[in-house]
Nucleic acid binder design. Structure first.
Lengths: 191, 191
DNA sequence: CGGGTTATGAACCATACGTTTCAGAATGTC
DNA sequence: GACATTCTGAAACGTATGGTTCATAACCCG
């Protein structure tokens, strides 16, 4: 045989995700990716092929590891309105935590704003993300709230979630207040 | 004296605004600005000094001409919850109109996502924009809805507005539905 | 040890960027 | 018509970009 690969691809994608998250797709220079992954250009291109491909890998990792766990409780078959309150409570806690992620916002939201309709890279991912949010909210709203308003209110929550992620880029504390206001409002929706 | 300026600065800023709106700050190359304004690089730099300065002029024009009129009814001393419904109705109409502006989204929202925390250009403008939205909503909510929920609900509407502007970048029709869902929900807030 | 593989660093490519400069043409006023 | 100013076109600058290439070194296994 021969010399085996000495780095873990998953760790490289993780490090790259950080760079795209902080700087955006265009703002992330190959040099930044080299520095943050500890890998050489040559190795990066040999492993992933292009900046675009690496970005898509990073975005997929983000959706799986960061977004997925936050939506999972609302996507369960027995989810109810309480899981939505927990979702916003989780966001508010993150925004207040001082975690750098609060300042970075949401990689998907950031990417939509940067690329959608300009660079053909996200394709159906933006709409898929929006629909996944809406479906999760609708599913949770279907237990514990008025049935005739589920779809409409799922859209309210979707728009508000996108907006909160944008708002945390401006000031995490105020974004946290937005989420907390939702927790209060959701109490009125219980039925 | 001598040869007078042959172009109208306001028209140049208007043309530049279009470019920044469509392509973003980084995405707008000087060449794009030349082509769209009909002015030479030399003239652009002689008139505005730099790309940044021209961008800030364009952003100010956007806030004055595009955002201002939409918020004005909610900012009046006698504004009430009906003006919020009209605000969302106006957004929904725009998103459904096929107007290119629907696909471009909101220049301010786009700029926040692109620049905030990365390029020191917006400074207090992002927070000012968010606060102006919130104040307008709070003012209108203070007439016609429960007084003890005004501040919280103004935050809900603010996050939702930012989110709707982002959503229209993905698909204007779905963004319009978000706005229309708000019109329905606002009926429950009347008191 | 030797051979096949992987990693590295550096150089290099073409392109694009924002910005500056300048000579000269256009244009209005005295 | 002369002059001051405005505008244009093109060139050039330095920097940065994403991407490629290649010789060399590091490494593991049979």
């Amino acid at each position: 045989m021969a010399r085996p690969r000495s780095f873990d691809t998953a760790e490289i994608v993780l490090a790259a995700r950080q760079v795209f998250w902080e700087k955006g797709y265009r703002g992330a220079a190959i040099e930044d990716l080299e520095r943050n992954t500890g890998l050489n250009r040559s190795s990066l291109y040999a492993t992933f092929g292009s900046k675009k491909a690496l970005f898509l890998r990073a975005l997929a990792l983000y959706l799986d590891d960061f977004i997925g766990p936050r939506l999972a409780p609302m996507e369960r078959a027995d989810a109810d309105v309480g899981d939505i309150e927990s979702f916003f409570a989780g966001l508010a806690r993150l925004f207040r935590s001082g975690d750098p992620a609060a300042r970075r916002g949401c990689l998907m939201v950031n990417s939509i704003a940067e690329l959608e309709g300009r660079v053909p890279l996200l394709k159906s991912r933006s709409a898929g993300f929006r629909d996944r949010l809406r479906s999760a909210f609708a599913n949770a709203l279907s237990r514990g709230t008025r049935g005739d308003r589920v779809e409409e209110r799922a859209r309210l929550l979707t728009s508000a979630t996108l907006g909160a992620w944008l708002a945390t880029r401006i000031a995490p504390t105020e974004a946290a207040r937005m989420c907390e206001a939702w927790i209060a409002e959701l109490r009125d929706w219980r039925a």
